[in-house]
Amino acid sequence: MNRVARAAELIGQPVVTLDQATTAGEVRDVLIDPERSRLVGFTVRGTGLLGSPLVGILPAEGVQSIGRDAVMIATESSIIRGREGMQASLGQHQDIIGKEVVTDGGASLGEVTDIVLEVDGPSARVVGYEVARPDGQKLMVPISGGVPLSRDALVLPAESEQHAVTGLNQLRQSVEHGRPETPHDRSSTRVVKK
């Protein structure tokens, strides 16, 4: 069953193994590829105190289910540990939270405060961004397909501003009505960090 969730809701969720029913850690960052609007995976930290050390990277392929309360994986070995493996799977990355959002018409909307995902069992795709305008007002901007991101900004189609809504529920409705087209094909990995 599909559901629409904020990336921020996933942060701190336990990562639980299906074979041993152990908590392998908890979600620290949600990794997305905005240009293909897909989930890349998660970084996993130790449980307990905030700031627990990084345990490893959980690639999206290793996820069995993204639940309301836990991210389920088959075994502990679904998490890639060690510096080299982690770097190889992360590639170049950057924080998307705090990034300036500019329309392709050249208007600045504000900055990214959260990402909205449509979760379907083990997979998830990006269906919108929450943007804080300079006056503090927050907008939910739906997207259909990939959007370019650089060090400097995230560029959204100008019409997405007209489709912006104020709450997650409204965005949920618009996601359920329109199916976005296939995202285009440039690959990179970004880190969503809280």
């Binding site: 969720q13 069995q64 289910s65 639940g67 309301r68 309360d69 836990a70 389920m72």
Partner: peptide, 8 residues
């Protein structure tokens, strides 16, 4: 108690 989808 969790179900296998990750719902508590």
């Amino acid at each position: 108690v969790l179900n296998e989808a990750g719902d508590a």
